[in-house]
Nucleic acid binder design. Structure first.
Lengths: 157, 157
DNA sequence: ATCATTGCAAAAGCTTTGCATAAGA
DNA sequence: TCTTATGCAAAGCTTTTGCAATGAT
């Protein structure tokens, strides 16, 4: 019986990736680290430290914010999450493993965020790599403006 | 005799734009505000608060960091500068007035930043506007990877 | 038995703010 | 004269860090 992507929380590849990363670095796979990753995997979206901390607290988990701050660089380093943007005085992160690479469209008024896939960026990357001699590994595109609702509300074109 | 773009510092349109903005808002055009804008215009590139503050101090200008922090939102609001990215624990800004809209290509190793113009993003904006019903006003694209020098140094493809 | 990790509280660093004084308009 | 702006220092926040205790391997 082969393990599938949704074969129970611990069967998800994210946990194996994290474990392998931790072991390879000679670190330790602790309950706290697993709890943090599980919460990120389960809610599978954007998050920030404070919000993640409160969510875990409300579920009765007892762990410190310091542990979250110390775990985040590890999760970034093994490619499970990434920084998305800095706003309201703190960083916002996003769970990316297994998600098709996407970009963000954000409303400047209500802060709603839509996601979109833009395949042509691959070509742009290639062109830049050639033109500047870079080894390109990724990009972040954020398009901003006003969402349909706020456009109406603000009487914009 | 018509005023040209480089007809002395005070003849540059940036100052007029800032003055008009200040007046329109019922604020006051102070020496401190002008000194800050002049430094940004003259160095015409990326900057952060601390660096700008030290540069002005070294030139013998006596003004406080608080004034810089209070002036920045005004300069953003009238479109003379913009936030570029948050790194090393603080925000980085960029002087944009009169600069062709460009995107950034950054080296993850040495932090070098190259700029490039990518006209196809206009089409992407239009497509998104139609598809999501947004009124799109701008975008930020950052492509990252390793510059030619660091590629060699790190032995990357 | 080792040595990394945790929680806590303190420290650090950037940014904001309260207040008395200065100074545009 | 009336208000806004400035400088300073304190406060506010997020994030980092030192340390003793804990726990993974």
């Amino acid at each position: 019986m082969t393990r599938e992507k949704n074969d129970g929380p611990q069967g998800r590849p994210e946990f194996q990736i994290f474990k392998d990363y931790i072991r390879k670095k000679g670190l330790r796979y602790t309950p706290e680290r697993e709890i943090i990753l599980r919460e990120i995997v389960n809610t599978g979206d954007h998050f920030d430290v404070d919000e993640l901390y409160l969510r875990l607290r409300n579920k009765g988990e007892r762990l410190s914010k310091a542990s979250i701050y110390r775990t985040i660089p590890l999760l970034i380093d093994c490619g499970l999450i990434q920084e998305v943007y800095y706003e309201d005085g703190h960083m916002h992160y996003e769970f990316i493993y297994g998600h098709e690479h996407h970009c963000h469209l954000r409303c400047l008024e209500c802060r709603r965020i839509d996601e979109f896939v833009e395949p042509s960026l691959k070509k742009i990357e290639d062109r830049l790599a050639r033109k500047f001699g870079y080894r390109v590994v990724g990009h972040k595109l954020e398009v901003y403006g006003y969402c349909p609702e706020c456009r109406k509300k603000l009487n914009l074109r």
